[in-house]
Design a protein around this nucleic acid. Structure first.
Length: 476
RNA sequence: CGGGAUGUAGCGCAGCUCGGUAGCGCGCUUCGUUCGGGACGAAGAGGCCGAAGGUUCAAAUCCUUUCAUCCCGACCA
């Protein structure tokens, strides 16, 4: 960036904050730890949201909305849940000018209010499954915050499903982490490792937590989405039973799953470079930006007419475009501005191009700039965008591979992860041993990948034989 | 809550050691020339130096107190 900070340097955090602000994604709000998502940043979130929402609906889910204020006592009904969230709750004590009899908490997540309602809605196996998702904001009073990655208030979706059988609930939680993984790879161009969280790292109130873990440009891991099999924990806490086909009363089985505006942060940190953002075509608010170039009114008219022909065609192809008609800025400034904002393709149109029936096309991902005929461009743009999308994913896969090491000892763990990087290891340690490793190395077990070779090996820490392999890394 | 740092124009900073009535870059306004990789010139606007108190003829500068923010840890989508 302007100060020569690159994503690979020590100042990754500084680079990140710079990009977020200079690309006009977000800004600090007057409330500590909260951020304002600006229109360009929100447009990225909207694209994420739109695609995920479609994927949820295609798999039988429906949207609903539950209220933000939850009676404090609700949070206390599930033992692990209360313990997990108590320190970070925002509490409302007054309303209508009076002190409330029972304080209300601003939802840190909605399991409790939703399960309170599910009790009313569920009587029979015929009422199941319930497959509800909600798009909402939540508040978690975190100690330290970072734009998009961890803010006091954030936007997310949370799915909450209720099932008649354990198998079905587990299958649902797996299906949803699968959708997240699919979305991360095919839309965000960000490869992820799908796996199970260890006991230490799982969601407060879950039986099992599943995660997608992505490698950022500084080689650290980012938990980018989670899905939980909740067992009967919330059903028991809220006394939600149903009558099964055998005429017996049984507690309902549950799953919950969510991704947040953190994904915008993931996009920035996974793909950015020293010029700023690089957005994957499928999620970029604008897939093409057009920069007109002219000196006088006569040239301007010719250029703009020519551009109109181009944009009409782009429109018919369903391509998201933007013509940068800002009068007071030079073309060079605009080039840099849109590179900062990560627009996949830029075309430059000046009098020269109008005369020759051409245009100049620049690709953000590769930096290459070529002269194409107008028709070549219009016929090829769809493929170009697909190609960029695919190459971005390949690039991140290669990067992750380069920075993932198979390790067999504690020393190798330190070597593999101290400056970022994933370590793959056999693991047979306890929760306490896992915590000790975290304290000493700052690296944590990110997950136990679903994909296991099944081969036996030696635990890098305890020396015991095991078939279980895990991924360790420093994380956000 | 522990450790470190910083508060001076919208943003980024200098000035503080050695007190003398506030400066630089970017941005902003107007006009002109520019416009194919962050344009240039000229003329402007903008700050009671985080707050309170003290020392002094005189405080951005010295002293005391206080508030706020940022960074590093513990927490976490």
């Amino acid at each position: 960036m302007s100060k020569g900070v690159t994503p690979q340097s020590q100042d990754f955090a500084k680079w990140y904050t710079d990009v977020v602000q200079k690309a006009e994604l977000a800004d600090y709000s007057p409330v500590k730890g909260s951020m304002v998502i600006r229109p360009y940043g929100y447009a990225i979130w909207e694209n994420i949201k739109e695609n995920l929402d479609r994927m949820f609906k295609e798999t039988g889910h429906v949207n609903a909305y539950f209220p933000m204020l939850i009676p404090e006592s609700f949070l206390k009904k599930e033992a692990e849940h209360v313990e997990g969230f108590a320190p970070e709750l925002a509490v409302v004590t007054h309303g209508g000018g009076k002190k409330l009899e029972e304080p209300l908490v601003i939802r840190p997540t909605s399991e409790t209010i939703i399960w309170y309602m599910y009790k009313k809605w569920i009587n029979s196996y015929r009422d199941l499954p319930i497959l509800i998702n909600q798009w909402a904001n939540v508040v978690r009073w975190e100690m330290r915050t970072r734009m998009f990655l961890r803010t006091t208030e954030f936007l997310w979706q949370e799915g909450h499903t209720a099932h008649a059988t354990k198998e079905e609930a587990i299958e649902e939680s797996h299906k949803m982490i699968g959708i997240y993984s699919d979305f991360a790879e095919n839309y965000m161009a960000m490869p992820v490792i799908v796996g199970t969280k260890t006991e230490n790292e799982k969601f407060a109130g879950a039986v099992d937590s599943f995660t997608i873990e992505a490698m950022m440009a500084d080689k650290r891991a980012l938990q980018s989405g989670t899905s939980h099999y909740l067992g009967q924990n919330f059903a028991k806490a809220f006394d939600v039973m149903f009558q099964n086909e055998k005429n017996e009363q049984e507690y309902v089985y549950a799953s919950s799953w969510g991704v947040s505006t953190r994904l915008v942060g993931a996009l920035i940190m996974a793909h950015g470079d020293d010029k700023g953002l690089i957005l994957p075509p499928k999620l970029a608010p604008y897939q093409v930006v057009v920069v007109p170039i002219y000196r006088d009114d006569e040239a301007k008219t010719a250029v703009m007419n020519y551009i109109n022909g181009i944009t009409e065609n782009l429109k018919s192809q369903g391509i998201r475009y933007h013509v940068d008609i800002r009068e007071t800025l030079s073309p060079g400034f605009k080039f840099n501005d849109w590179e900062m904002k990560g627009v996949p393709l830029r075309i430059e149109v000046g009098p020269r191009d109008v005369k020759g029936g051409n245009l100049v096309c620049a690709k953000r991902f590769t930096g290459e700039k070529v002269v194409l005929s107008k028709n070549e461009f219009l016929n090829g743009i769809s493929n170009m965008l697909d190609d960029i999308q695919a190459k971005m994913l390949e690039g991140r896969k290669a990067f992750r591979k380069e920075n993932t090491t198979d390790i067999n000892s504690y020393d190798e763990l330190i070597a593999a992860t101290s400056n970022g990087g994933f370590a793959k290891a056999y693991w047979d340690g306890s929760s306490d041993e896992e915590k000790r490793i975290q304290e000493e190395t700052k690296a944590t077990i990110r997950c136990i990948p679903f994909e296991q070779s099944g081969d036996e090996g030696t635990c890098f820490y305890t020396g015991r034989k095991t078939t279980k392999q895990v991924i360790l890394a420093k994380s956000y």
